[in-house]
Design a binder for these strands. Structure first.
Length: 540
DNA sequence: CGTATTTGACCTGCGC
DNA sequence: GCGCAGGTCAAATACG
């Protein structure tokens, strides 16, 4: 699809922010919307002339305008919408004093000229309507393509994750059953293939750990490892839970075959009891600029609570997914205390039901991010995933778009798409989003398949971004994303090298990366089954 | 009247 | 043990 259409799709802006928005980013050079006057849209008279004749008509023929209005001819007035300032003001200023002059100066020549102009304007209006209808049609097509794309993307991610899951199951189950075997024996069981960081001893008890859950011994004192107070036991439980999940539901849900890896089990609880709890402890937080009370992510939510959180004057609203009975997914919505234009949405849990295409992008993002986080499989030089690296690798548009917070009560991946570059400018894609849809400033990974964002992305980028990570599962693809598609000067070669190693060693991360990117590319669907959150008023 | 939202009460975990 | 904060429940209320 032609890029140009992406710029002309938005033809009926209504948001109050839009005026300033267009002033700052006059990318809609060929905007046919009658709601804008020519003086705001174009800065020079030459530019005014470049947009068809309606502007010339009023600016060059002042006497005619006077006459038309003095005679109460409304046919011209309909076109005032195009040139509100120049046309109406002139009439108002001169209507009284120039009346006689106008009457005396009427000539057939002028009248014919007037009729010609009227005719011209009528044609232009027809053309405008035609363009608008075509815009609508293209919008519809874009939505359709976007939905199909999201569905396919999700299917692909699902298949990939299932593949990884199956391979992990093959590797971990012999270990679970056999118990303590020598590394040599394990190598034999894996057809002589040495699996990195596999079957590590965690302590005197001889607890073994899923290789995807424990990257290294050396960082047991690190933040992530101290989250639940008893890392060793926790990791062992994680391994068991994963095995159980793989056995009981190998195909799992459509969008989250990995279900919810468990890391946060309380060591005192039986595995069966803690399963539900741990499923919901990994969180994915999304920061977005939005005036709307709640971001649209394609799911249906029911509000079940609201509380004042400490340190934030804005209430925190609690929602649970109502698309299926017993769906454990919940989310919290709260405005940022520092910047109330930022909406923080925290997702928790895994859907137990099929999702509409509009919701798949977000679901895949949150699921993959949570899986990635809980798997604890981010190797790096010091054995732990560098947070900054993760941020850059997942969302290379900004230096601080994705972060992992382990200091919070729950491990949380934060996708911060409100971030700005060091010079204060928004990331490129962010700017495009703002231009395309001021209502919704940020292209949420929340299954927001908004056509505007898709349109704002140049078509060639999509396969380039998505194809490589999805099919190659190598960090090289991640490097291409960082270096080629979204230029980010702060990403050093060292970082990229570390990223390469990390991605190569961890297919989970690649899946998460792909999901995150796909969700961004997916765009958004506004007002999709969401209920509004009450304003800043508190109830407690 | 059914469904969604509001909101006070209650539960739980954690720090002191 | 106590207080605090986060999270959830469920009756009351609002809404279509």
């Amino acid at each position: 699809m032609d890029k140009g259409w992406g710029l002309t799709l938005e033809t009926s802006p209504s948001n109050s922010d839009r005026a300033g928005f267009f002033k700052n980013k006059p990318v809609f050079g060929f905007n046919l919307s009658p709601k804008y006057n020519a003086g705001e849209m174009f800065s020079s008279s030459d530019e005014k002339r470049s947009i068809v004749n309606e502007v010339d008509f009023f600016s060059d023929k002042k006497p005619i305008v006077k006459k038309e209005n003095s005679q109460g001819d409304n046919s011209i007035r309909t076109d005032d919408q195009f040139v509100v300032n120049t046309g109406l003001q002139l009439v108002t200023a001169n209507a009284g004093s120039d009346q006689s002059t106008v009457d005396d100066g009427v000539s057939s020549e002028v009248l014919e000229d007037k009729r010609a102009k009227i005719q011209q304007l009528a044609q232009l209006q027809v053309e405008l309507e035609r363009m608008n209808s075509e815009n609508q049609r293209l919008k519809g097509m874009l939505v359709q393509v976007n939905n199909s794309y999201s569905a396919l993307q999700m299917h692909l991610v699902t298949l990939m994750q299932q593949q990884q899951l199956n391979s992990k199951t093959e590797n971990t189950h012999p270990h679970e059953v056999v118990g303590a075997k020598s590394d040599e024996e394990k190598k034999k069981e894996n057809n002589g293939t040495i699996v990195p960081r596999q079957f590590m001893e965690l302590g005197p008890s001889g607890s073994k750990v899923d290789p995807m859950d424990e990257p290294s011994h050396s960082h047991s004192s690190s933040e992530e490892r101290t989250l639940s107070g008893s890392p060793r036991n926790n990791v062992e439980l994680v391994s068991r839970d994963k095995a159980i999940n793989r056995e009981e539901s190998p195909e799992s849900e459509s969008w989250a075959p990995n279900k919810a890896p468990k890391l946060m089990n309380s060591s005192s609880k039986p595995v069966e009891q803690s399963t539900e709890a741990t499923m919901r402890k990994a969180r994915v937080s999304v920061r977005a600029r939005s005036e709307a009370p709640m971001i649209s992510d394609g799911c249906q939510w029911r509000k079940y609570g609201q509380k004042m959180a400490k340190g934030n004057p804005c209430p925190r609203a609690y929602y649970r997914c109502t698309m299926a009975v017993g769906c454990p997914v919940r989310k919290q919505v709260q405005r940022c205390a520092d910047d109330r234009t930022i909406l923080i949405t925290t997702y928790e849990g895994t859907h137990n039901h099929p999702l509409p295409p509009a919701a798949m992008a977000m679901a895949s993002t949150t699921s993959a991010a949570a899986n990635m986080l809980l798997s604890g499989s981010m190797p790096s030089a010091d054995g732990l995933m560098n947070t900054d690296f993760l941020a850059r690798a997942m969302l290379p548009c900004s230096s601080n778009m994705a972060t992992i917070s382990a200091s919070a009560p729950f491990p949380t991946v934060t996708l911060d798409l409100t971030a700005q570059n060091p010079n204060g400018a928004l990331p490129n894609y962010h700017q495009r989003i703002n231009q395309a849809n001021p209502h919704f400033q940020f292209p949420l990974p929340a299954g927001l398949n908004h056509p505007n964002f898709a349109a704002s992305m140049s078509a060639p980028q999509m396969p380039h971004i998505l194809g490589q990570p999805l099919y190659n599962q190598s960090k090289f693809s991640g490097l291409q994303i960082s270096q080629d598609n979204i230029h980010h000067p702060s990403i050093s070669h060292d970082t990229l090298s570390a990223a390469t190693a990390a991605i190569t060693a961890d297919p989970n991360f690649t899946a998460a990366l792909a999901a995150a990117i796909s969700s961004i590319i997916g765009g958004s669907h506004p007002n999709n089954g969401n209920s509004p959150m009450s304003g800043p008023s508190s109830n407690k």
